[in-house]
């Protein structure tokens, strides 16, 4: 029964829309598909989308581990407020995040005022894309790792300390192998989130073709021409790439989880 419900929900919510997507794209035929989805500009856009997402998910995974550790282990005034703040990026319309970030990092913005003279362009740049993607994906990286850290057996850390391990040795040899599967899961979720993000990116990337144009912008361009099928080809390629990436990451996660047992 529960399996039937699961199957039904997954079909209605995920598989059906995906099938429509693939069917629409397939209506162009193989040659039309390649012509629409594999232009130099589209390839560059896939590169920007995937590259920035992987980079952002990596940053989120590392930062998420640090933040989750602090939230789970250190009791400080305002911890609960910080804990609640973690979820804000999930609730905030991402376009707002894009606008706020670009306003902060442009030359006359609060941060850009200091950073741009140093040659750091946080707005209308690749860096800007990575910044907002970290913003939207960080909650996933934190929330996946935090409960795992909270459930860690503190005894093993004490055992390591008594056996003469330094703090660093204790963390890298004893703690990290236990939470690495969760960190990788966090990375995968952050990656999935970053790959699909559009709203915030278009406001900060500058959308320069071949440089900072992400694949979803191309999709919207094609939709403006009412070229539905062509637009969906790009979506299908992006989806296939994302799926491949996620399958690889999941396989890695499972290997690590087995090893940690």
């Amino acid at each position: 029964m529960t399996f039937a419900i699961t199957a039904l929900v997954m079909t209605a919510l995920v598989l059906l829309p995906l099938a429509v997507l693939v069917l629409r794209a397939a209506s162009l035929g193989p040659q039309g598909f390649v012509a629409a989805a594999w232009t130099p500009r589209a390839r560059a856009a896939y590169g920007v989308s995937l590259g920035a997402a992987v980079l952002a998910a990596t940053v989120s995974a590392v930062l998420g581990l640090v933040v989750a550790w602090v939230l789970a282990r250190i009791d400080f005034p305002g911890r609960r407020v910080l804990d609640a703040l973690v979820d804000v990026p999930l609730a905030l319309p991402t376009a707002v995040a894009g606008l706020v970030y670009s306003a902060l990092y442009v030359e006359k913005g609060w941060l850009g005022h200091w950073l741009v003279p140093l040659g750091i362009q946080g707005a209308y740049s690749y860096l800007g894309i990575v910044l907002v993607l970290v913003f939207v994906s960080l909650p996933f990286a934190i929330r996946v790792v935090q409960p795992v850290i909270e459930s860690l057996d503190r005894d093993t850390e004490e055992a390591a300390r008594i056996l003469g391990a330094s703090r660093a040795q204790t963390f890298f040899r004893v703690v990290l192998p236990g939470i690495l599967p969760a960190v990788v899961t966090g990375f995968a979720l952050a990656l999935a989130r970053a790959l699909g993000e559009y709203g915030s990116v278009v406001f900060i990337s500058g959308n320069m073709p071949f440089k900072t144009e992400i694949a979803p912008v191309l999709i919207v361009s094609r939709l403006e021409e009412f070229a539905y099928a062509e637009a969906t080809t790009i979506a299908v390629v992006l989806l296939a790439m994302s799926l491949t990436l996620l399958i690889v990451v999941n396989a890695l996660q499972q290997r690590l989880a087995r090893n940690a047992q």
Binding site: L99, Y124, N207
Partner: peptide
Amino acid sequence: TPVLDTGARA
């Protein structure tokens, strides 16, 4: 043109 926003208001 350093920025190509997707809409007029942006």
